[in-house]
Amino acid sequence: MKNPPNYAIRSVDHALQLAVMLQVEGPLGVGEAAERLGVVPSTAHRLLAMLVYRDFAVQLEDRRYAAGPVLSLGASSLSHTSRLRAIAMPHLAALVERVRESANLVILAGDHVRFIGTVECAQALRVGNREGMVFPAHLASGGKVMLADLPPERLDLLYSAEKWADRPEQRPNLAALRRELRTTRERGFAINAGRTEAGVTAVGRAVRGADGTAQAAVSVSMPTTRFSRDLLPGLVGALAATARDIEAELRGAAM
């Protein structure tokens, strides 16, 4: 379970957010970085300069900044992730307007999920920005809907005892996980009730590519105090519509 530190260091948090933006979204200018972080341009410039110094960023000829050697993902991975996020973000915003809770876009990274996009809702008590964070896939709602789509042999490999030898206490029971994923496949969505973060409940649904396999997942996250089973039909319906809209736009972009 992941909880925020009691004493967050704002400058460190801003630098980490910038690093994630560069890695996932591509090049940024100083002004855009300042606007995204809610800081003055001089602060954004100092943060970017430090990222360059530590090889987390490089400055391009047009004076924008891009991911440096430490953050390099590989051209194809970066291109796909950036395109996916760019397409999904307006749809996440529409989802937030509809359900009045925060929404996320996640991808599978081994046995973890990585948050590549978040749109926060406007409620005072809300789940905040999760961009760049990673959680165990078998615990997260978006992770479970993507794991449910994997061939059995790949799931076995991901959760083999050998791969988890250095953290055996964290390895899930594979038989129980298979049962949970079978239920997820049957109903088409997954719930995470406080398994990754105390006091947070999330509902997730897969986003599928042209071949029908799960490429990512969208989720709605809310304080557990606002969640009830009566809300599920509306949340699942909104997630399904959002996933379909993203899928349709991804197909159009691939043509």
Score class of each variant (00 low, 15 high):
residue 95 L to G: 01
residue 228 S to L: 12
residue 228 S to A: 14
residue 244 R to A: 15
residue 10 R to G: 12
residue 22 L to M: 04
residue 174 L to W: 09
residue 100 R to N: 08
residue 91 H to R: 15
residue 47 L to Q: 04
residue 97 E to T: 08
residue 162 E to N: 02
residue 175 A to K: 08
residue 131 E to C: 09
residue 43 T to M: 11
residue 133 M to E: 13
residue 166 D to V: 07
residue 46 R to P: 04
residue 134 V to S: 09
residue 252 G to I: 09
residue 62 D to G: 12
residue 177 L to E: 03
residue 107 I to V: 15
residue 91 H to V: 13
residue 23 Q to A: 11
residue 255 M to I: 02
residue 113 V to G: 01
residue 245 D to V: 05
residue 220 V to N: 04
residue 46 R to D: 10
residue 169 E to H: 10
residue 224 T to H: 15
residue 169 E to Q: 13
residue 44 A to P: 01
residue 154 R to I: 08
residue 86 A to E: 14
residue 93 A to K: 15
residue 118 T to Y: 10
residue 172 P to I: 05
residue 130 R to L: 15
residue 23 Q to L: 10
residue 203 V to N: 04
residue 124 A to S: 05
residue 173 N to E: 06
residue 246 I to F: 09
residue 218 V to P: 10
residue 42 S to H: 02
residue 185 R to E: 10
residue 90 P to E: 03
residue 192 N to R: 04
residue 134 V to P: 02
residue 93 A to W: 02
residue 193 A to K: 14
residue 108 L to T: 06
residue 250 L to N: 00
residue 96 V to G: 05
residue 251 R to K: 11
residue 150 L to W: 04
residue 170 Q to H: 10
residue 125 L to D: 13
residue 8 A to W: 12
residue 93 A to N: 09
residue 248 A to R: 09
residue 159 Y to K: 09
residue 149 D to K: 06
residue 58 V to S: 04
residue 44 A to H: 02
residue 192 N to V: 02
residue 205 R to W: 11
residue 215 Q to W: 13
residue 151 P to M: 04
residue 49 A to M: 05
residue 81 T to C: 07
residue 29 G to F: 01
residue 65 Y to T: 08
residue 230 D to M: 14
residue 185 R to L: 12
residue 203 V to S: 03
residue 7 Y to S: 11
residue 194 G to A: 06
residue 216 A to E: 10
residue 71 L to Q: 12
residue 218 V to N: 09
residue 171 R to A: 06
residue 210 A to F: 10
residue 22 L to E: 03
residue 136 P to Q: 15
residue 195 R to T: 09
residue 229 R to I: 07
residue 167 R to E: 10
residue 135 F to C: 00
residue 220 V to M: 04
residue 46 R to T: 10
residue 62 D to K: 07
residue 177 L to Q: 11
residue 168 P to D: 00
residue 195 R to Q: 11
residue 19 A to Y: 01
residue 8 A to E: 15
residue 92 L to S: 02
residue 111 D to N: 13
residue 88 A to E: 00
residue 174 L to F: 13
residue 204 G to K: 02
residue 175 A to P: 00
residue 2 K to S: 06
residue 29 G to H: 07
residue 116 I to H: 00
